[in-house]
Write a protein that binds this DNA or RNA. Structure first.
Lengths: 265, 265
DNA sequence: CATGGTTGTTCCAAATTGTGGAATAGCGTT
DNA sequence: AACGCTATTCCACAATTTGGAACAACCATG
């Protein structure tokens, strides 16, 4: 199989270099015509074995490779995919856009674009919050089964109350998560911090596991119900695009997928 | 590219299943004719993206995939490849055959077939020895550059003397390693343990890095110079075969390759 | 021991598919 | 504006993949 052989050689090269390469670079190294290399790359990209940087036009390894690497590399790949689409979303809404994933019963922010408004939500990468009182957290928890959820909170007693509006009982939380599952997104009205409203939507990887969630957060005065309703399609469009880039299956089918085990480090 | 697409689908399936599958199994799942699946698998095997278990005839992921996984998985894959060929060697020489890799200035045994003779060398997986006074260790150290070697031993003072014949000075060691590089193998005469002789030969991975070494060890009385000379071709044949299965480049060209960084855990 | 039902593997004519040089388009620099 | 550099598209030729069917090898079962 000649065509397959050539494609595998291209993959080999990308694996061994482990950095992005241009079409001509590959073409020269492997002594293949540019047209051929390009066609191969297009197919590899289609099946997520390679990916093209839309800015530099260079090609690198795709998510299918990162999926089987260490959790650390996986996060790196995830961030690389999220970054440009999060920036796009930020430019549209001008509020702080952030991404987080679940670490035990907390969420940890892994990427963000901070609003430049005078009054804004300021979040640093690495920051953690209790999952149960953030929109992002509720989205991430919604991927857990009832059993997993009770397991997670079994030795933790009553839920910490961040603000007056935080949910504090397991029953309330479960009911809330039920709604999140139906809607496919979560909101929080000053549950994390007084004066801050937030909305979040999930990201799935190519196995259909929820790996992170993206949120828009801003001050109560700007994040009115109307504004949230206006931004929600944009947010969901963004998370859908990211999920798609990650190779997630059935884009609009009912989620209810498993939550990917998050890394400790 | 239809043929590539199909091949990638086969790979996808192997990745997601993460266990060996038969041709018909794949053929049914993907609804492709058996002939096509077989042809694709043959090509994937050729380029180390898949491998066939010669006993069960089933196909699984190849070393190219394991190469980019966590060090732990890499060791698992390495052992899977070494095991049958080490057994073969053991059956031919009836002496203890073992494999070890370098961990700092020690070697750690990662696989072994123990002789069933009354007087035999008994080694457990996980055991460690100072690298400088074992044949295996000398082989592994021979892949290091002069700079790396001094770096490794810089804060360790005089080399530990295992037996009377052990090398103890850095100068002696370097001279000894020079010889190992020339020969492509190492021997030790009661340098680790009084009464025990040993011979070792290196294994390279598909990047040309030395990842482990295999040794035959036995009591001085049986491991005479003549016996060693008789067994050496068998040992080298075995390590060559393993290296080849791992996809090592230029089988008989001058090694002088880098030593792969070994895992800590 | 033969038989039926598995499996993996091989074969080959038909035609669909990949080929790769050359043309095009797009981008940044001179 | 013209140049040199990319990535990308195009297309007629032909080499390649295709996949059904035949084969071989194995293992239960009758």
């Amino acid at each position: 199989m000649k065509s397959l052989a050539k494609a595998l050689l291209v993959m080999d090269l990308l694996v061994s270099k482990n950095e992005e390469m241009s079409v001509t670079e590959i073409s020269n190294t492997l002594e293949m015509p540019k047209g051929t290399v390009h066609r191969i790359l297009a197919s590899l990209v289609k099946y997520k074995y390679a990916r093209q940087d839309h800015e530099t036009k260079k090609y690198g390894l795709g998510i299918r490779f990162y999926m089987m690497q260490s959790p650390l590399d996986r996060f790196k790949a995830l961030r690389a995919v999220m970054n440009p689409l999060m920036r796009e979303l930020y430019l549209k809404c001008k509020e702080t856009v952030s991404a987080a994933s679940l670490m035990d019963d907390e969420i940890e922010y892994i990427e963000r674009f901070e609003s430049e408004m005078l009054l804004r939500v300021s979040i640093r990468v690495g920051t953690r919050f209790p999952a149960h009182c953030t929109a992002t957290g509720k989205v991430l928890l919604s991927a857990l089964s009832d059993a997993e959820l009770t397991q997670l909170y079994k030795s933790r007693g009553r839920l910490k109350k961040c603000t007056e509006t935080s949910v504090t009982s397991m029953r309330e939380l479960k009911k809330s998560l039920e709604k999140v599952r139906e809607q496919g997104y979560a909101r929080d009205r000053e549950e994390t911090l007084i004066g801050v409203n937030c909305m979040a939507s999930p990201i799935y990887n190519l196995k259909g596991e929820m790996v992170a969630a993206i949120s828009i957060s801003g001050p109560r005065e700007r994040m009115t119900p109307e504004k949230v309703a206006e931004l929600m399609p944009l947010l969901q469009e963004t998370t859908a695009k990211i999920s798609q880039e990650l190779g997630a299956p059935n884009i609009d089918a009912a989620p209810a997928g498993k939550l990917a085990h998050s890394a400790k480090s």
